[in-house]
């Protein structure tokens, strides 16, 4: 029946067809209008400011300097700090993203397996509470917990005869500790989207799998995971676009002693662009982050397209 209807229409790509189609879909465009207007107002208009990446822009000066800011960053006096920060950012945030995805998905599966809705809700509520603590508070608590002077963890280690470890100021320990604190804070929160997605899965698939004699593990592997894949990939790719943005967690958890591994681009941008009011350089760093984010997203989306045949963008 649909096919028949299609035949009556003018051929695709013809002007008449397009006009006709746009007219038929006018309500969709109308619905999109508020979205478009707000996007233009609050996101595209300020983007005019991206040009300041090519300016020397401070409270006292606004002068076009071409590529000077980028030359300075990539090859100039600050380049060594910049590239170190760049490497740290990529490492910390991609490892963090991968861990976040795996742990959140696994936890969502385990939570979903709890039969009592009340218990599940209770656990889930507790697990997502740390997300509502600001990073400043989180860092002050963990500094005490991880303290080498009678901190909780070191007391336990001391029980087994280990010398106290100053986790936060130890270059080897800082990265795992940082990743752990990030997971502590945001894992429960990260499961929500997967729990919501799980509700969209077809229960018949489970029943069929069960009849086929698939155990819990196989069900998870062959039914649940494929069903969650779209959500997992979407969340992953979107987060990849923001991969260079990690800021507050590192800002409050890092310190002078571990700067080699903890200094990241956003913290550098904050020091220069906000504290130093060098808005031109701040914007240049921001633009660099955006371009890297864009490249990462385009690459992963391309891979995604090849494998699954659909694009996110």
């Amino acid at each position: 029946m649909f096919a028949a209807k299609e035949k009556e229409r003018p051929p695709k790509r013809s002007f008449a067809y397009i006009k006709n189609k746009i007219y038929r879909d006018r309500l969709y465009y109308l619905m999109f209008l508020p979205v478009a207007v707000m996007t233009i107002l609050f996101y595209y208009l300020p983007m005019v400011g991206i040009r300041f990446a090519f300016y020397e822009y401070t409270p006292f000066k606004k002068e076009f300097v071409g590529l000077d800011n980028f030359k300075e960053l990539f090859f100039g006096v600050m380049s060594k700090n910049f590239w170190r920060a760049f490497n740290n950012t990529l490492f910390l945030s991609i490892v963090n993203l991968i861990l976040a995805t795996i742990i959140s998905v696994v936890l969502a599966l385990l939570l979903n397996d709890l039969k009592s809705r009340k218990i599940r809700g209770g656990i889930q509520t507790i697990l997502y509470l740390p997300h509502f603590m600001s990073w400043v508070v989180v860092s002050s608590i963990f500094l005490i917990i991880l303290s080498p002077q009678g901190g909780f963890i070191n007391n336990i280690l001391g029980f087994f005869g280990t010398e106290p470890i100053y986790f936060m100021a130890n270059k080897k320990w800082w990265v795992p500790v940082y990743l752990f604190i990030c997971r502590w804070k945001d894992t429960g929160w990260g499961t929500i989207i997967y729990l919501a997605a799980l509700t969209g899965l077809n229960p018949e698939l489970y029943e069929a799998a069960e009849i086929d004699g698939a155990g819990k593990f196989k069900q998870a592997l062959y039914v649940t995971l494929p069903g969650l894949m779209t959500t997992i990939i979407t969340v992953f790719v979107l987060n990849l676009g923001k991969v260079l943005n990690i800021f507050e967690s590192v800002f409050v958890l890092g310190n002078d002693q571990v700067k080699e591994v903890s200094d990241v681009i956003s913290v550098m941008a904050y020091r220069i662009g906000m504290k130093g009011a060098d808005y031109g350089m701040g914007t240049a760093i921001g633009l660099f982050k955006s371009v890297v984010g864009l490249v990462l997203v385009l690459i992963t989306d391309e891979i995604n397209k090849k494998i699954r045949g659909s694009s996110l963008l």
Binding site: M47, G49, I50, G241, G273, T283, G293, L294
Partner: peptide, 8 residues
């Protein structure tokens, strides 16, 4: 991905 920054 892209944003204009604080001042703009």
């Amino acid at each position: 991905i892209f944003n204009g920054g604080l001042v703009p």
